[in-house]
Every structure is written in structure tokens, then in C-alpha cells.
Design a protein around this nucleic acid. Structure first.
Length: 284
DNA sequence: TTCCAGGTCGCAC
DNA sequence: GTGCGACATGGA
């Protein structure tokens, strides 16, 4: 167990921010599967109690939650008359761009196309349960809201998915995306594309390399770049972002104001747009 | 039931 | 390069 307390860190908002699909909320407690790692979290006044050791926190989770980056400057260029974005940034205070596993992001966002977030989560859990290794870790005693018999499965490796049959993949509610997953898994497993090596490319080269994969277009590539490679300049445009830009910016978002970190701003817009719609039943 | 979901592909022009 | 229909399935 290890307690942390940081500014600009809100687990609930991050879990609901659409950048991660295996971060579940149980009132003031959370479970989080990242690759083959499992973390339990409990709110504790202004901080959080984590199920990991201090060593594991400093060697993995600290970077995973992007806690070395100062988020306080990202709002400084928002114009005073852009009330929409001022509100979005304030509403999203505490969201960080996670450093997630590249392979997991690639497959997750291929699945995400034309699916609702609950449906995406459901598909990924089916994949993990069918193909992922069971994680050997008990629900710790300080976690009260999660069933002690719960099982958690690592994200499937490229090898396992590359060798999966189409019928089995179809059982994971992938729909027409099954052949995309199959083709991409084979490409990665064979080593035709080395996801780690892509880190050396600049943003545009990275997007181009990702888009060479089956089922990866401009939007998915930007999501993988942003959430898997921490390219915080990447600005994925999906139906929500487009809707917000059309309504509040007359179809053209002033990207130049946020040079180098537009992805953070994008995440604020996405979260604010979706959450406020969820609660009011209409767009903000 | 009907509609929509963190889009992409293939194929016209 | 741009436009357009097809695409599987689950959740609301």
C-alpha cells in the first residue's frame, strides 16, 4: 500500500474521460488494468491509497499517471472570451493524459470505431477474458466495494491475438472489426511493425506508420499517438469533438493557440462535452 | 423498434 | 485529393 497526493489528479474524471477502457469506478474505489498490471485505488481525503508498493509506484505508476508533468500551464493561452473552453478546462481539472501501453491502445482504438464507450469496454473485457492471462492478485482488504472473488485478466499479447481464429474473435462482439484486429495482430507479431521503435519517429511519421495498419485511420492513429505514445500535440477529431467545434467555433478550432499540447485541450473538450450532455440531456 | 456509437475501407470521380 | 455507401453489434 502506498498513499499519494498530487495536484491536478482526479481518478474519477480520468476513468470517465474516454482515454482508458479498463479503469472501473466503484464509488470511491477503483480497479485499473494496464497491460498485465493491476492496481486498486481508494480515495483518501485529498489523495489516494494505492494497492502497489512505493517502489512499483515510482517505477511504473508515476509515469503512467503522467505525474512528472506540470498541467498548470496548459490553460494560459485560452482567450478570456472563450467561455466554453474556460468552462471545459475548469470542469476537467484533474484529468491527465495517461501513458498507456502502445499495443493495447492500438487494438482498443481499432475496436472503438462506431461503438459506444460501454460497448468498447465490453468488447475489450471479452477479449481479455478469452485471451489474456489471469492476473494473480487478490482484492486487497482496504478495498470494500469490489467483490473479493473478482478475476482480472491482462490485455492479450500480439502473439495470442495473431493466432486467434476468426470465429473466436467474432465471439468478442468485434463485428466487422475482427479482420482488422487479426491483420494488425499478425503484422505486429511478425515484427513487420515494431511499435516500440515507432517512438523514434516524429508526430507525422508516427501517424503515417500507424495508418498503414488495417483498420487504422486518421482518428484512431491520433488516439494511439496521444494515449500510447504521449504525443500531446495530437488532436483526434471524433464525432464529439466535431460537434463541439461546429457549435462553439463555427467549424474551425484555433489549434495554433495550443501549439505542442492541443491533445490535452482536446481531452478537456471531449470530457466536458460528453459529461455535460450526459447530465443535462442536451449539449452545453 | 429505431437510432446511434471516440471511423475506416474501397471505389468512384 | 474529395465524396459517398457499406459495414456488425450492442446499448439506450
Amino acid at each position: 500500500m502506498f498513499r499519494i497526493e498530487y495536484p491536478h489528479l482526479d481518478m474519477k474524471k480520468i476513468a470517465d474521460s474516454g482515454q482508458i477502457f479498463r479503469f472501473n469506478v466503484y464509488n470511491d474505489e477503483y480497479s485499473l488494468v494496464a497491460g498485465d498490471k493491476l492496481l486498486f485505488i481508494k480515495e483518501d481525503k485529498n489523495g489516494y491509497i494505492l494497492s502497489c508498493s512505493e517502489f512499483e509506484f515510482e517505477n511504473f505508476w508515476m509515469d503512467y499517471f503522467d505525474l512528472r508533468l506540470d498541467y498548470s500551464d496548459f490553460e494560459k493561452n485560452i482567450p478570456a472570451d472563450d467561455l466554453f473552453l474556460i468552462n471545459a478546462a475548469e470542469y476537467s481539472y484533474g484529468i491527465r493524459i495517461l501513458n498507456q501501453d502502445k499495443w493495447e491502445m492500438l487494438i482498443s482504438f481499432i475496436i472503438s470505431q462506431r461503438k459506444s464507450i460501454p460497448a468498447i469496454k465490453s468488447s475489450i473485457e471479452k477479449l481479455a477474458k478469452r485471451y489474456g492471462k489471469k492476473i494473480d492478485m487478490k482484492v486487497p482488504d482496504f478495498i470494500k466495494n469490489i467483490d473479493k472473488n473478482s478475476e482480472f485478466f491482462a490485455f492479450p499479447t500480439p502473439k495470442v491475438l495473431a493466432n486467434a481464429s476468426t470465429d473466436e474473435l467474432n465471439a468478442c462482439s468485434l463485428g466487422y472489426r475482427s479482420p482488422y484486429i487479426e491483420a494488425t495482430a499478425k503484422t505486429v507479431y511478425r515484427g513487420d511493425i515494431d511499435l516500440e521503435a515507432l517512438s523514434r519517429l516524429d508526430d507525422n511519421e508516427l501517424l503515417a506508420a500507424l495508418m498503414s495498419l488495417k483498420g487504422v485511420g486518421i482518428k484512431v492513429a491520433n488516439c494511439v499517438a496521444l494515449f500510447g505514445y504521449h504525443r500531446i500535440a495530437a488532436f483526434p477529431i471524433d464525432v464529439w469533438i466535431k460537434r463541439m467545434i461546429d457549435e462553439h467555433y463555427d467549424g474551425e478550432f484555433p489549434l495554433k493557440l495550443y501549439d505542442g499540447y492541443a491533445g490535452v485541450i482536446q481531452q478537456y473538450i471531449f470530457y466536458y462535452g460528453r459529461e455535460s450532455t450526459k447530465h443535462s440531456g442536451k449539449q452545453p
